[in-house]
């Protein structure tokens, strides 16, 4: 996959942003030396990018996140280090943005510089099995809310439709028409379709731009 310097992952909370961001950072590291992942979540104190801190350290991926992330201190704080994302242009970055428009507010601080540099991909993570993004109209509504909070327009869609452990290959195939409808409604391409790595083999060749996900450990 060809990456822009900054890849932003936004979406409804629980859409799968963090797992995708983590996997993208791993993937980026295969082709780039200087890779960073940033956790911009100011909404949810659970299920954070930081949960994979050990994996990042092993792979020499720079993790930029609040020191309170994962500490049970429920404080919506961001570190000053996040300015490195726009200041250090030699770094390839994946940014995991918090859920919904509320989470995307934090992005507003970085938006002017990201727009100025013009080397970013902003992806909307969608799951048709989540009730508030179950059809194209409701998904585009979430999309517009996030855009107005973030101050940046989306450039593509990540179809992460899944039912957790119950997901079948057929569920993914069935979700393609939903992703196409979202795409038609907003005029943006389906950038990726993501699947649990366990389903990857059964779908390879049947789905365009298929991206396997290794899920983060939930409990340490």
């Amino acid at each position: 996959m060809r990456y822009k310097r900054i890849t932003l992952l936004c979406g409804h909370y629980g859409s799968g942003k963090t797992n995708i961001a983590v996997n993208m950072a791993f993937d980026l590291k295969n082709s780039h030396k200087n890779v960073a992942i940033a956790d911009l979540d100011i909404v949810n104190p659970y299920f954070r990018t930081k949960d994979s801190a050990e994996e990042f350290s092993k792979r020499d991926i720079r993790l930029i996140c609040s020191e309170y992330a994962g500490s049970n201190v429920d404080i919506p704080a961001l570190p000053a280090e996040m300015y490195a994302l726009t200041d250090d242009k030699s770094m390839m970055c994946v940014i995991d943005v918090g859920g919904d428009d509320r989470g995307a507010l934090a992005l507003g601080r970085l938006a002017p510089k990201i727009l100025e540099e013009k080397d970013y991909e902003m992806l909307l993570v969608v799951n048709r099995f989540r009730p508030l993004t179950c059809d194209a109209a409701s998904t585009v509504e979430v999309m517009r809310e996030i855009e107005s909070a973030a101050g940046i327009r989306f450039t593509g869609i990540v179809n992460n439709s899944n039912l957790g452990e119950e997901t079948t290959a057929q569920d993914i195939l069935d979700s393609l028409s939903y992703a196409d409808k979202v795409s038609a409604a907003c005029g943006l391409p389906v950038f990726l379709t993501t699947v649990n790595e366990k389903l990857y083999n059964s779908l390879e060749g049947k789905v365009e731009n298929l991206f396997p996900l290794k899920l983060q450990d939930k409990i340490k």
Partner: peptide, 16 residues
Amino acid sequence: MADKVLMKGNEAIAEA
């Protein structure tokens, strides 16, 4: 909505 949806416990309470 699909027959089955993926929800957080908190959301399931709200929708129910």
